[in-house]
Each structure stands twice: as structure tokens, then as C-alpha cells.
């Protein structure tokens, strides 16, 4: 039976996911807009999910894909709660610039 990894190779997937994850980290550090920071976190989650699926194909086991399914559900819940928190921050402060959120600083 023909496996797709014969043509591509697992290394290429690992390199792609590493670079994608690093882009996500970079976005978290680089931007001040809290929504863009959230988007960067989504990019990181997607990089890990893609690597899970690649290794699920590599080991020919369905459990990796089941785990990705759960991680997507958790990501959806996380985004919904996070955006609701951002909306309420925006209502009380008037901006979502993460460098302005210094109320807890002593």
C-alpha cells in the first residue's frame, strides 16, 4: 500500500512544524495587540496538531488523530473564553494593548 510519507518524509513535516511553532512564539513576543497574540497562540496549537497527524500517519495509528480532535475542542473553548475576557477588558479599560494592562503592578 502506498504511504504518503514515502514521497515526502517525516523530516519535512518536523521542520515545517518547528518553524511554524517558532513563528507563533515570535508573534506572542512581537505584537502588543492582544488579539494578534491570541492568533499567534492558535498558530502554535495548529503546528502541534499538524505534527500529531504526521506522526499518526507515520506509526499508522488512529490515536494521534483522536488526540488532535480533543485538542481542537480545548482550543475552541480557550478561544471563546479568552475573547470574552478581552471584550470585558476592553469595556473597562478602553484598549486591549497588553502593555497598558499594568493594574496588578505594585
Amino acid at each position: 500500500m502506498n504511504n504518503i510519507l514515502n514521497q515526502i518524509g517525516i523530516e519535512n513535516y518536523i521542520f515545517l512544524c518547528v518553524i511554524l511553532f517558532c513563528i507563533g512564539v515570535f508573534g506572542v513576543l512581537y505584537r502588543r495587540n492582544a488579539i494578534i497574540v491570541f492568533m499567534s497562540i492558535e498558530i502554535m496549537l495548529n503546528a502541534v496538531n499538524l505534527l500529531f497527524v504526521a506522526f499518526s500517519t507515520y506509526h499508522q495509528d488512529a490515536q494521534g488523530q483522536v488526540f488532535v480532535f480533543f485538542s481542537m475542542a480545548v482550543a475552541a473553548a480557550e478561544v471563546a473564553v479568552g475573547l470574552a475576557i478581552l471584550v470585558s477588558i476592553f469595556r473597562s479599560i478602553g484598549s486591549i494593548d497588553i502593555d497598558n494592562l499594568k493594574n496588578l503592578k505594585g
Binding site: 475542542a73 473553548a77 471584550v87
Partner: peptide, 17 residues
């Protein structure tokens, strides 16, 4: 458990916003 998590997240979002 995931279904419970999504339900809790939904209630939390409604309460927060």
C-alpha cells in the same frame, strides 16, 4: 468530558460578556 468542557466554556462566555 469534552462535551462538559464546551458547555462550561459556553456558560462562562455568556457570564463574562
Amino acid at each position: 468530558y469534552v462535551s462538559i468542557l464546551l458547555l462550561v466554556a459556553m456558560i462562562g462566555v455568556v457570564l463574562l460578556s
